[in-house]
Design a protein around this nucleic acid. Sequence first.
DNA 1: GTCGGACATTGATCGAGATCAAAGCGCCCT
DNA 2: AGGGCGCTTTGATCTCGATCAATGTCCGAC
Lengths: 246, 246
Amino acid sequence: MARLTPSIACNDCPIRYRAVCADCDADELAMLERVKTYQTVQAGAHLASAGETLDHFASIVSGCATMSRTLEDGRRQTVGLLLPSDFIGRPGRAQSAFDVQALGEVTICRFERRAFERMVRDTPHIATRLLTMSLDELDAARDWAVVLGRMTAREKLAAFLVSLARRQAQGMGGRVSGGGVTLNLPLTREELADHLGLTIETTSRQMTALRKDGLIDLPQAREILIPDFEALSAEAGEDGDGGPIV
Amino acid sequence: MARLTPSIACNDCPIRYRAVCADCDADELAMLERVKTYQTVQAGAHLASAGETLDHFASIVSGCATMSRTLEDGRRQTVGLLLPSDFIGRPGRAQSAFDVQALGEVTICRFERRAFERMVRDTPHIATRLLTMSLDELDAARDWAVVLGRMTAREKLAAFLVSLARRQAQGMGGRVSGGGVTLNLPLTREELADHLGLTIETTSRQMTALRKDGLIDLPQAREILIPDFEALSAEAGEDGDGGPIV
DNA sequence: GTCGGACATTGATCGAGATCAAAGCGCCCT
DNA sequence: AGGGCGCTTTGATCTCGATCAATGTCCGAC
């Protein structure tokens, strides 16, 4: 499975700015500092809509958002989960290809479009970084296509929990202790189902099945404890190449 | 659905080099011309294997290849179809994330890795172009995830045929005449099934169903005639935003 | 020609997940 | 406390696509 690379993000957001700019002149980013604005939106708010023209880029500071498409008859598929430090917007594209919707309260850091693109143009290594980020997302999207196309409901759920655990551990949003991992599930069962390409009922049933089989514990519906990370990874059909959680 | 942008490709390959380099100094690409080599491989040949370290990039000159992953138990999912002018390899990544396999006889144009990356580094607008290409692929991968996650077998097949028709028309590999479109299907039913996330039997049955419903004609198993492109698009759940075939 | 093998179609049956329906559980509000 | 609402779980049944099995078609080798 793909590993994600640190995103472009702001200096005093609690994010991985240094990683981006270790080899970057402070001056080159000063411009961004001048135009950035913080914004906090409530659960359900649309950060972008498919086809909408955006005048800004953003990175997620806190909270969680989904990228999804809804078909005319109401079927919805989530194509990506955005966590803190993830980037919203596509350099060179004014239009969003998918809906981006806040799950809970979300704080983003916005950059005015023109300023951001000027910086990209004038700072070659930022362009390289953006390319790397895009390729990571591409790998992740294709990995997920394999899950959607060929895995069973149980495997889909296990694969999602494993990947979320890895990302939360990476972003320090989760706790790892003695082989056990605690996950805060930022999605409702419905949002989860939309990501897995399942119905809410099947998702709930598989969650119960994993619990009964001792692979996860559910102190609360939205809090998941993984006692044996390796065991859950095995359910996701991983042969171990995904690496440990930390 | 996503529109693809012309790829990086070689000068005298019958591809869209000019589009790439309209604003490019001939000198900047001369280096590539010196290191490029053509290679023709037979059906089934692996152009890359997941995890394998690649010392080159390539673009497809003729023929067709798939990007896929095979699970340990043999389940396979194709995550992308590579047609002439499509690019193989990921700048900045030495390893391939997926298997790339030739479907029929395939000719590629190879660029030595180091030379290519040097050119990317020294030619900012090439980096921008690569970013654009990656974002196109990202859109395409996410679009396909929606198909895999939420569409019925019939819709999946229709969606694939429509997108293949668009790409072949774009690449002049297909003929458009009086509303009717002829497609050369470069895939066997099995390869098609692996792309659609279905079995070979279901794929075949849906093909027959579309034929019986007059949406396609099948003079031969691998030749598909689309009498009414709009009608087939509608089967794919498109509301018309995908645009016409030409 | 006809043999053999790869590819494709069709039929019969099965089963995972969808659908329809009903509780159960938190939690806020009055 | 009790009512209402959103989220979750569980149960009963149905259906689409998978699976198992057979047959058909094309094409190249001999």
